[in-house]
Design a protein around this nucleic acid. Structure first.
Lengths: 184, 184
DNA sequence: TTGCTTACTTACTAGTAAGTAAGTATATTT
DNA sequence: AAATATACTTACTTACTAGTAAGTAAGCAA
């Protein structure tokens, strides 16, 4: 594994745990036993580094989407929720959207833009799944698919945060009830 | 208004917008046209300052609760939601729990503890309102009151975050559907 | 074998973070 | 009038931030 990829992986981990302002080049350098400047060689600025993280996550999401196209709607939804479960397992991380939203005011404009695109892509995909899943009789819920998608997404985002203070059981409670709320 | 209170008010505003790591004594000093060290006179450390902010918010919450005891359940719930609306209005702030949860790993232990108590108090109050409101026939929803409280609270938390990238209309969508979901 | 690229290190800068020690002006108490 | 407390300022420290300039060792290409 190349240094560049190790930096990306580590930085993403830190970002999800501490937010944009919560990690430094020094943290990464120390963990990889390289020098601060070596990171600057691969990513000229923190802006570029985080931009690369978002780009990576976005492209992973696109592949994940395509990979799941063969599945029925409820499998796709449960896999979507599983992503948040994994964040919970992985040292009480936030999701990428949450981590960046919470530091939104500190973000360089380009990072805000990339985050915007990513958040929109997730919401659009999830809304479509819920809409066509309902049409297919797999789901049953009140309100528009877009509204239901927003509630589930934001509740999982908040759930990962509240997990940090209230513990895993509350996250599980939320998740189970969100699933119940779309059950036909 | 005393300097101490001005510091508290300003610091809370910064905390809600930028998180724990996102504001500094210098920011506050500049805004109040005093020196860095003057803040240390009132609050020896950032830990003490944020502890005072949480204590303040917690006691405001207790008074608010008591003040609303005469109201029917649905008024109390709509006032609760109104708090999040106000955060949205006030320069796209997060709520206090969100702001602190997102920087949880950076928080001094005492701050984590105070946050814990505050988050628990909110959830407990809200669960009780939903439970007794349902018993009184004012609400109708699936699952336990605790689960429904968690969903509404975390979804509003996430809603305030997503408002920053997706705009106010998505927040409003979430809010309206959350209300619909408990309507009898 | 000379030159160029890759992937760094060394050594630094300017700026900012929280925090502190000592001094000062004003008001209050004795 | 003298002593004390309040609410600061001045001037500083230590530690860390992102970022940079210059140098270097290894590998590949002509």
């Amino acid at each position: 594994m190349q240094t560049r990829d190790k930096i990306l992986e580590l930085a993403e981990g830190y970002l999800l745990q501490q937010g944009y302002g919560g990690f430094s080049y020094a943290d990464i350098a120390k963990a990889l036993n390289i020098k601060n400047a070596a990171i600057h060689y691969h990513f000229a600025s923190k802006e570029e580094l985080v931009l690369a993280i978002i780009k990576n996550a976005h492209s992973r999401f696109e592949h994940w989407k395509k990979h799941l196209e063969v599945q029925v709607h409820w499998v796709r939804v449960s896999r979507f929720i599983k992503i948040y479960d994994n964040s919970c397992d992985k040292s009480d991380s936030m999701c990428l959207v949450t981590a960046l939203c919470s530091d939104y005011a500190l973000l360089p404009t380009k990072v805000q833009g990339a985050l915007n695109n990513f958040a929109k892509a997730i919401h659009q995909w999830f809304s479509e799944i819920l809409a066509s899943g309902r049409a297919a009789g797999e789901f049953n819920f009140e309100g528009s698919a877009s509204q239901r998608a927003s509630i589930i997404q934001t509740s999982l985002m908040g759930g990962l945060l509240i997990n940090r203070v209230m513990g895993r059981s509350q996250y599980e409670d939320i998740k189970n009830q969100l699933i119940n709320d779309i059950q036909s």
